[in-house]
């Protein structure tokens, strides 16, 4: 694995700076330099994935045990993996279903386990006390029973309204149900707004990182 010094070499920094400026040139307009560096970037990422897959996964975990340590059962894994490619032959494509079926069975079992451990604690935690006693206040939190109670009430209110919105088994003609569903949709909009705001912040952070790279690592202005 290359060391840190390899990556901060002046040639690497210059290549990074030229690549950054070339990709930013799209802001002005579409151009050939942008296209060239876009292809270089995609090619580098793809090449890097192939190289790492061999050096980190296939080489040490499959090739070395099979050919250097004589652990021949690893050859069966290659045979099983190659079954996927029979999908390209009309005559032999039925064999690919064995590999796909095994993979789907593995994924389904996994999904069952993760769904249970993912959602059950959240469902349990959604049962919140609306009348809070002093012994339920977390130590050192500085919160009050009224504050926690109001927070829990708001949580339950939002959860019920949002769940109502997603209840499609009957037409929502009842005024109370319709109002609850509308409120739920409004609450969802708040959540989407928060996600959009976070997305904008993430993009700003990426821009700032690149500008800092140009100013600090390349031009040594700061």
């Amino acid at each position: 694995m290359p060391t840190a010094a390899t990556w901060s070499h002046p040639i690497g920094v210059w290549f990074g700076a030229i690549g950054t400026l070339a990709l930013f040139s799209l802001i002005y307009r579409e151009n050939r330099v942008y296209r060239l560096f876009e292809h270089i970037f995609i090619g580098l990422a793809a090449g890097y994935l192939i190289k790492t897959t061999w050096t980190e996964v296939l080489g040490p975990q499959w090739f070395t045990p099979l050919f250097h340590d004589g652990q021949w059962p690893w050859a069966l894994v290659a045979g099983f993996g190659l079954l996927f490619y029979t999908i390209f032959s009309r005559k032999h494509s039925w064999m690919s279903r064995i590999a796909i079926g095994a993979l789907m069975g593995f994924a389904a079992g996994q999904a069952f386990q993760t769904t249970a451990s993912d959602y059950i604690p959240q469902i349990r935690k959604s049962f919140k006390p609306l009348f809070v006693t002093p012994d339920q206040i977390p130590l050192g939190s500085g919160l009050t029973t009224l504050g926690i109670g109001l927070n829990n009430l708001l949580f339950v209110f939002i959860m019920v309204t949002v769940l109502t919105y997603f209840f499609f088994s009957f037409e929502q003609k009842n005024k109370v149900v319709a109002a609850s569903a509308r409120t739920g949709r409004l609450m969802l909009m708040f959540a989407f707004g928060a996600i959009f705001g976070s997305t904008v912040m993430a993009r700003m952070a990426l821009l700032i990182d690149r500008v800092w790279f140009l100013m600090h690592n390349w031009l040594h202005l700061q």
């Binding site: 604690p121 959540a191 976070s198």
Partner: peptide, 17 residues
């Protein structure tokens, strides 16, 4: 996580996962 993903994690923080 990145900021894009962070809002969806609050349910997991609330549940203590």
């Amino acid at each position: 996580p990145t900021s894009v993903m962070a809002p969806e994690l609050y349910t997991y923080l609330d549940s203590g996962q």
